[in-house]
């Protein structure tokens, strides 16, 4: 079965992203395809490679990057939400004249249409948030 995932919260304040990570891991383990994870609202904060948690805490951003690479999962950060919250890739850096970028490996910035498309293409869309 083909899954789409929406995440509305950042990596650490809420449990949402951790729940979603565990859910996605279990889904691919069971042989399902996770077509896309769409990060919206503060969920875009899952996509910055500058995240540096203390050593005794999990690195959620890296966990997403690794999971995406291993299972070919499309990690999409909403552009409008990302611009508000300072999540930047090279293209956005150039377009908005910023002095750097912070997007994590495996993530890409794109439009809200990617969420609707996931809803159309996937057999199930599961939302994690607060």
């Amino acid at each position: 079965m083909k899954f789409g995932i929406q995440i509305n919260e950042g990596p650490y304040t809420h449990e949402a992203s951790t729940t979603a990570l565990n859910f996605v891991s279990a889904a691919v383990e069971a042989g399902h395809e996770v077509f896309r994870v769409f990060f919206y609202h503060d969920g875009v904060n899952n996509g910055t490679r500058y995240t540096t948690p203390p050593q005794d805490d999990r690195n959620i951003v890296e966990a997403w990057s690794e999971l995406a690479e291993k299972h070919n999962i499309d990690l999409v950060v909403c552009v409008a939400a990302a611009q508000r919250r300072g999540i930047v890739d090279e293209g956005e850096q150039e377009r908005n004249g910023k002095d750097g970028n912070n997007i994590a490996p495996g993530f890409r910035i794109s439009g809200l249409g990617q969420l609707i498309e996931a809803g159309i293409q996937c057999d199930r869309l599961v939302v994690f948030g607060d």
Binding site: Y40, G111, L112, G113, L115, I116, E117, G119, I120
Partner: peptide
């Protein structure tokens, strides 16, 4: 999101 969804004719 709702406004964007309109473009997808769902």
């Amino acid at each position: 999101v709702i406004l964007i969804s309109a473009a997808f004719e769902q």
